[in-house]
Design a protein around this nucleic acid. Structure first.
Lengths: 343, 343
DNA sequence: CTGAAAGCGCTTACAG
DNA sequence: CTGAAAGCGCTTACAG
């Protein structure tokens, strides 16, 4: 709280013009004569004037602020997404208010209350669990929002995700075509649409090769649970020869457990495929074959959907899915002739 | 921009009271009779009223918003710090506005302009490079700010860092006591006070054992440069037997390069020590011996410094340094009798 | 305790 | 183009 906030009225006095004229000089579209502009700009510079955006927002009803609700940043997909969302929004003149809400739906709800009170122009929801009431409420309030990397069963809600079903299916086909026959799935989270879609695609991909999953273990996108799941998978008489993991973040834990605890060789003993293609996947330590979730395209799409709702009043187009390409690296055996695509 | 924003005046009309009374009901300290409270709360609930915080801020001069300026989130220390800063500030009733400014000082400056225009109550600067003019300006404006994980030469500026000199010194002593004699330093960034302090401590730590660094290579806290530096260190006839790396983020790249490219064994052939103790350091894949930068304590200290300036007008106490403990894991040979502490 | 009034720092018709 | 006036949705002395 600086002692001396300079106001438009002070600038006006110094420049010898009216306060609204000062306002006009700082309003892009407004018409002001060149000489007034100069007078005002000089006075403003001398006094160190900066228009108060809060007062402006109160008048215009637009805060140029977007709220982003996140669950956590442990999965490295999110820091990258957050930074890119923030950068794209900044370019378009918006500020970003971030909130972390762990997965309980109530917490998300109260955070959204705060965002509404703060008069944000729109909201990006990237937290895993969101009550249906919440999205219904935002829709009733006519508050623009986009679900980022999450779906809801209602496909008319504006959301941007990867084509998770197709991605999962591709993973299943790739591993089956690679000659594996005991293919397990360390899954994301049953209650997330993303997780369900990936799993269903995977199951169908195997089915196309006459296979069923060796096992499916729900691991809530958590490292610790992925480690336990991996150990469990290898504790019996029969063990898997391949694992499709619900995201890269868990896949790193799986690779580590296979190598450091189970002393298995990847991909000789076990093939591993992840989902996301976060930058770490390309590190030599992991060299993970994975389905690419194109952050850049997801971010662009999210920002353009949201801003078209806000600025142009466009009706959201419902769920947008972005294709997931398979990025082949060293962690999974490559089927012969795969270059030609899935069989 | 919801069509129907409910205002205090509408609630007042419905409740049969004056608009200021509605305001009082939503103002913690204000005195209102119990029956008015009930009337207003009922009306507010029925209409779905939510006080407009922008209007409130315009009156009170307090926005309950803190700006956080970051450079990037690639180094996993930052996502964790950001989340914790945000959570602590939320608990205290503040919203968080995030900005990413790559390292050019001008960019940081323009971001701060935006923050000032947005009427933030305070600023946390966590971006690597900050012009001295900027901090001088904030000080002149009497805008509360804290430098997070960065110092400036002027030690009277409010900042929270690890005790980097001591940490670097401990790393040097630990490696020297471990019997290494050709100890290299893949350093952070010469222009950052953090990097310089760690390096100076390291050099002095070696000196205490009669050693000088095998080499010091500035790698700007970047993975790619750390990889190049590692390869360079091992390209000559004489090679190092230990490396102290300026942060964990680079140390992961160093470990990977040693193992995957140079086919060296850690710690048999080379000991590696990092700085930060980000969660990944504990992963079995890395098992990195490192100096702990206690995020939690740094966050607590930063938030309490900033809020005491904002809320109590307390004069900042200058740089606060938080002790860095050595976390011993498997990536570096442990000196005999080290349990007793540095020699 | 509570209402009428003024004001926070702007924007935006409204005249001219 | 530009000034006087009203208003955005609140808070806060000021009376009573």
């Amino acid at each position: 709280m600086p002692d001396t906030r300079i106001t438009a009225a002070q600038v006006a006095r110094r420049a010898g013009v009216s306060q609204p004229t000062v306002s006009r000089v700082f309003t892009p579209g407004a018409r002001v004569s060149a000489d007034k502009v100069k007078l005002v700009q000089d006075a403003a510079r001398e006094l160190g004037y900066r228009p108060n955006t809060l007062a402006r927002s109160l008048n215009t009803g637009r805060s140029f602020t977007i709220g982003i609700v996140l669950a956590y940043l442990k999965n490295p997909f999110y820091p990258e997404a957050l930074q890119k969302l923030s950068e794209r929004l900044s370019e378009r003149g918006y500020h970003v208010l971030v909130f972390f809400a762990a997965n309980m739906a109530e917490e998300v709800d109260s955070v959204v209350e705060g965002l509404l009170a703060h008069q944000v122009d729109g909201i990006i929801l990237a937290s895993t669990s969101m009550s249906n009431q919440l999205t219904a409420r935002l829709r009733d309030l006519n508050m623009p929002f986009v679900l980022f990397n999450r779906g809801q069963d209602d496909r008319t809600l504006p959301s941007v995700t990867a084509a998770n079903y197709d991605g999962g299916r591709l993973a299943g086909q790739f591993l089956a075509a690679g000659g594996h026959s005991r293919i397990a799935h360390i899954a994301g989270w049953k209650k997330s649409v993303n997780g369900r879609d990936r799993q269903q695609g995977f199951v169908d991909g195997l089915a196309a090769h006459g296979l069923t999953p060796f096992a499916v273990i729900d691991s809530h996108y958590r490292r610790s649970m992925a480690i336990t799941a991996t150990l469990d998978l290898f504790s019996g008489a029969e063990v898997p020869d391949a694992i499709f993991v619900g995201n890269d973040h868990m896949a790193f834990a799986v690779l580590e457990t296979l190598r450091c605890d189970l002393r298995l060789c990847v991909p000789r003993d076990v093939s591993v495929v992840g989902y996301d293609d976060v930058p770490m996947s390309a590190w030599k330590t992991y060299d993970l074959t994975t389905l690419r979730q194109p952050v850049n395209r997801m971010v662009e799409e999210t920002v353009s959907m949201l801003l078209s709702m806000i600025e142009d009043g466009v009706t959201p187009k419902g769920r947008v899915e972005i294709e997931s390409a398979l990025v082949i690296r060293g962690s999974a055996r490559v089927p012969e002739g795969w270059a030609d695509g899935p069989i």
